[in-house]
């Protein structure tokens, strides 16, 4: 089957469109040269980073882009250090599940690297984290996060689902900057892949709510995460009450759409994890 092969990577076709799409990224030959370097290296992140950097004069990122990417970077710092710590902790992750978490770990570190590269000197420094959600006490509600595998997986799920909602909530702000928007979206959907895997792992792949790959209403079985799922029960999109257009149940209706979180809501969720 034709589609069974990997679908490839960011190709020259979309690259060209990114470069010509809007005034913000309209540049001359130098742009193509920079992007070509990334493409020659056959690296999507490099190409994206080149695109993003090249879309603006270095050091002249629009304030809104800096603000959005630094929010993203803060979350990626959180996730990367969380997985770096968890993966390094002996006896925490069973051998059978190790590849799942080393995969996610590698991705989060790549996201940090990309965002720092795109932001340059405007990148915020990495905060000091308390993964127990204890605001630095080291004795928060998830005190056994690195000794109890169940807690570790639960916190991982909360981080991933928060990440999906956080990126989504910033899409509108990035709309005037198509290269950055597209780059952010290619991270956003990877966070969703992570979230689905961790959710299913927590349910031992039994595919039963609330441990399916998708979010059912605002359901959560993790203490202290009501804010992470608040609003996911929404069943109205673009003013269309979804219950009126199919006879599919409300659980599946709400699973079909992931909801965004505002910057403020995201920062409130992560605040207990930041010293």
């Amino acid at each position: 089957m034709k589609l069974d092969t990997p679908l490839g990577s960011l190709g020259p076709d979309i690259t060209a469109r990114l470069l010509t799409r809007r005034a913000a990224i309209t540049r001359g030959a130098s742009t193509s040269a920079v992007v070509a370097v990334g493409l020659r290296m056959a690296s999507v992140p490099v190409a994206i980073a080149a695109l993003s950097r090249d879309a603006f004069a270095q050091g002249a990122l629009p304030e809104v882009v800096v603000r959005v990417l630094n929010l993203a970077l803060t979350l990626e710092y959180l996730e990367s250090e969380f997985y770096n710590t968890g993966v390094a902790k002996s006896g925490l992750i069973p051998a059978a599940d190790r590849t799942i978490f080393t995969t996610i770990q590698a991705h989060e570190n790549a996201h940090v690297q990309y965002l720092r590269s795109a932001l340059g000197s405007a990148a915020v420094p990495k905060p000091t984290f308390d993964f127990t959600a204890g605001n630095g006490s080291g004795n928060g509600p998830y005190a056994d996060v690195f000794t109890n595998y169940e807690t570790f997986k639960a916190v991982a799920q909360a981080f991933e689902d928060t990440g999906v909602r956080a990126y989504k909530g910033q899409a509108g702000a990035l709309q005037p900057y198509p290269a950055v928007l597209t780059a952010a979206l290619t991270i956003h959907s990877v966070e969703a892949r992570h979230a689905a895997e961790v959710r299913r792992l927590r349910g031992n792949f039994s595919e039963t709510s609330p441990n399916e790959g998708w979010i059912t209403r605002n359901m959560t079985d993790i203490p202290g995460t009501a804010a992470v799922y608040a609003g996911e029960e929404n069943a109205t999109q673009l003013g269309i009450d979804l219950t009126t257009i199919t006879n599919i149940g409300v659980d599946e209706l709400t699973e079909s759409f992931d909801e965004p979180l505002t910057r403020r809501a995201v920062l409130a969720i992560v605040a207990p994890f930041i010293v």
């Binding site: 990577s9 994206i48 799942i100 290619t186 892949r193 689905a196």
Partner: peptide
Amino acid sequence: ARHASAIRDLLEPRTSHFAPDAFDDAF
């Protein structure tokens, strides 16, 4: 993306297959 992750995991359980790259494609 959640679907893609889950389908991929069904094909190759508990591997890196659910998310083959740190950045998804944009076609």
